[in-house]
């Protein structure tokens, strides 16, 4: 797909530049990785330098940061929060647990592969990733946004049936409102 800079319209370039420099992160400490978010956001590492900022509700947020493993109970809430976010939206998988289950690979209550359930744009590995790694991950995401390649949300919409089937496999009582895309 020729998604490089030349084929983008001028409007897209402006939009992508703005999106790149302004990432509102949903303040949802899903897993134990949430402990490294305060250092990332506060004075030592200061992610706000890159336009990264916490937002309280999914309506206003751009980035869903899945900090670590997801218990099935949390997965349901994460999906709901993700679907309440407004396009364009991105997901960052944080820590080894999102990649392959990490040290909870044989736990009966945590999911192992995050991108089977929601599309992930950037993974940050480590247990836990240091704040530097987190910022590195965000910069990676910014690069993807700039090139217009961070299209996880589009992927999700196109393959909603597949994702939904995976989600319902884990979440036994699916009493969420179904969204029409």
């Amino acid at each position: 797909m020729p998604n490089d800079k030349k084929s983008q319209k001028i409007v897209d370039i402006i939009q992508n530049a703005a999106r790149k420099h302004s990432l509102f992160v949903l303040a949802y400490g899903t897993g134990c990785g949430a402990i490294e978010i305060p250092p990332t956001m506060t004075s030592r590492y200061d992610a706000e330098r890159f336009g990264i900022r916490g937002m309280a509700t999914p309506r206003q947020a751009d980035v869903l940061l899945v900090t670590g493993y997801l218990a099935t109970k949390t997965l349901k809430r994460v999906i709901r929060a993700y679907e309440q976010m407004q396009d364009p939206k991105y997901v960052i998988g944080f820590g080894s647990c999102t990649i392959n289950g990490g040290m909870y690979w044989d736990s009966y209550n945590t999911i192992k592969l995050l991108d089977k359930y929601i599309p992930v744009d950037v993974y940050i590995n480590g247990c836990m990733p240091r704040p530097e790694a987190v910022i590195e991950g965000f910069i990676e995401l910014q690069g993807l946004i700039k090139d217009g390649k961070a299209n996880g949300a589009t992927k999700y919409k196109e393959n909603i049936d597949w994702y939904r089937a995976n989600q319902k496999k884990v979440i036994k009582n699916w009493n969420m409102p179904d969204y029409n895309w």
Partner: peptide
């Protein structure tokens, strides 16, 4: 076209249903 009209049940309740 892309504005979704939703009911008042579809609100932010901390992720809970």
């Amino acid at each position: 076209k892309k504005t979704r009209y939703v009911t008042t049940k579809d609100i932010h309740t901390g992720g809970e249903i």
